[in-house]
Write a protein that binds this DNA or RNA. Structure first.
Lengths: 371, 371
DNA sequence: ACTACGTGTGAATCCCTCC
DNA sequence: GGGAGGGATTCACACGTAG
């Protein structure tokens, strides 16, 4: 493949392009710590009946059952370890990875991810609303696939747009089981002869939820098993940069045309709900400095059971306790911690008002005139 | 343990008893090829670190028991390989095994099962209808556990009561995802002091479906991690013989009393597992994920007086208001509440269509294969 | 008897910034 | 890098008590 470098001599990222070749080799040529998210839909590769192929496409010549079984699992494991090692190298320290699979391969993949140092955050079940039935009635309808979401390592940071996903789910925390239809109808890519362009095309709704939940606009998303480019199409739609790797020229061609047709959403639609966590921090002392609360004034706990007096330095003093609004609240409640902003109230004109109202006033002013 | 033999000199099966001791050692003393089904609920190796509190400051009662602590993945893997080897030895040639776990351990267990020669038939997802939320909002609600169902080896026969399961599922082929509540209320075993008798008691409805589906009356069911004996209780109820292995004397005592109380062929568990299903809630965000509405697209109020723009996370943004379809509708109308589904319309081909039409489409799809 | 409301709790790898 | 401290964060049920 072509080696690209930027002006500093560091290899540049080939953003929004489909790279040709084996993903392990191609990833070796990309710079370490450069990617925000990896979405991988690796080959399931474990149909031991009939033929079995190594990652390099050579056919495994079975001698007997024992040898064949050992050889095939071991060869799939080596392949998995190899691409996972390169994938992890490419991730930024606060990057994350999603891998999708079925019971044929997902257990080996999950164990390999843990062995490679990834830290599993959730396994997410894609529950298909319209799966193919088990025609022979010998097993359960295979109605789901499993995704593993993992950070780069134990304690590593990662992106999780909690509020946006909660909003997507009408105000209820998003669960680890997602009910979504399989990809068919107009979304399913076809060849000129009307056949499926790719046997395992994933629905865009699945990628939408993955990318809204674990990336921000402008992030770089890598898909090492690009296929017909669902990841790229949704990334472009959502204003994320993407890189695809695919060794099949036919799939690359379909993906290229498909992504070129995508109209990105406009910027304002990409702004998603955020939590208070992202809001600027307001020290309680500022309420006193600005005269919103007077030193000596009494605050009352939300439940009305406790009171404390405001001091000029923005601390509280109650019976035998003094400290921050949080510390005094925790001490009075005998709790391990306490959010003083939602715990304390002041009184004006006979009404009891949470002090958080004052913080919101300050934040509103800051939005008009940011520092 | 005591060695038992029957009249022919072959070791006899200690049917319908709880054996004391470490399951690997105990299994070594049982005869090869003697068991029809194994249900195993091994330690999950949760690796919990500090304490966790709910937003109301109450402390979560974590699984911190000694039996769930392993020094490393390697030591957990050795343990898993050892008990799986003995389990497989005990199975009849046409026997089968179920193992339940979470993302902490299930990938390692699944890979070890394949390595041990088991042949996976399905992975089955237990979708909890009432899981514990993720209190800190840092991950998805961990709302499911995974069960692996496997035969003794590739091509081995196994029991699958297809019609019985179909009947259990109101005439529709049983899928690989089962919606069942966690074990609480009256079914949850308590000590005299009112604490949980076992931290991870499984619901009887789960075992009911497993045993109805993959055993016949008179079959022998072995549970090497017996705990407080859910497997034994359901087996007795359904007229199956059972063997439990448990090393904790306290758990054995609770299980013994519990199983003695079971009336065989009680139909109560059946009623639990076929509990009625509520009308499915469809989040508005799903219309966006599924491409039925585009982020950036405008919606119009039914009366034509207001409009708002759809965002990628399924919220709306109008003049000075943003939030859910319901919130924005209420704000624009100055009303205390608003049903956004009937309030908002989208435009296609010059026609104005209520968004509720799209929700009805999704519900219709779900009715094809409910659960 | 029935409803309304408050409380308790479940296999959990659950914060982040600043000094 | 470790410790301190601000302050953000929950859904579905079962059960008990009040009205």
């Amino acid at each position: 493949m072509t080696k690209m470098t930027d002006l500093t001599g560091a290899p540049a990222l080939p953003l929004n392009t489909i790279m040709a070749g084996d993903c392990i080799e191609v990833m070796k040529g990309l710079p370490e710590g450069s990617v925000d998210l990896i979405f991988a839909d690796p080959p399931y590769n474990l149909q031991l009946k009939g033929e079995l192929h190594r990652p390099d496409n050579s056919r495994v010549d079975a001698v007997d059952d024992e040898w064949d079984r050992f050889s095939s699992f071991a060869s799939y494991d080596r392949f998995t370890q190899d691409w996972l090692r390169e994938a992890r190298r490419l991730l930024k320290p606060d990057g994350a990875i999603w891998v999708i699979g079925s019971y044929h391969n997902i257990f080996r993949v999950g164990a390999a991810m843990q062995d490679a140092g990834f830290w599993i955050l959730n396994d997410v079940v894609w529950r298909k609303s319209n799966p193919m039935p088990n025609f022979r009635g010998k097993r359960f309808t295979n109605a789901h696939e499993t995704m593993i979401w993992a950070s780069k390592g134990e304690g590593a940071k990662y992106t999780f747009n909690y509020e946006a996903l909660k909003a997507l789910n009408e105000g209820i925390q998003m669960r680890s089981d997602w009910v979504l239809p399989i990809c068919n109808g107009g979304e399913r890519l076809k060849t000129e002869t009307g056949e499926k362009a790719h046997p395992t095309q994933k629905p865009m709704s699945l990628l939408h939820r993955v990318l809204v939940g674990s990336t921000n606009p402008g992030d770089v998303v890598l898909d090492p098993f690009f296929g017909t480019g669902t990841t790229g199409a949704v990334a472009r739609m959502l204003g994320r940069d993407w890189i695809g790797i695919e060794r099949d020229a036919g799939y690359r061609e379909v993906a290229h045309r498909r992504i070129a047709d995508v109209r990105p959403f406009d910027k304002s639609a990409l702004q998603v709900s955020t939590s208070r966590r992202a809001a600027p921090r307001v020290p309680f002392g500022q309420l006193v400095e600005r005269g919103m609360l007077r030193p000596g004034e009494e605050l009352w706990s939300m439940n009305g059971r406790h009171k404390a007096k405001v001091r000029a330095d923005g601390t509280l003093i109650g019976d035998d306790v003094k400290g921050s609004i949080h510390q005094v609240g925790a001490a009075l409640e005998g709790a391990p911690s306490c959010n003083g902003w939602t715990y304390w109230c002041f009184r004006r004109d006979g009404k009891t008002v949470p002090i958080d109202v004052l913080r919101q006033q300050i934040r509103a002013e800051m939005e008009d005139r940011p520092d």
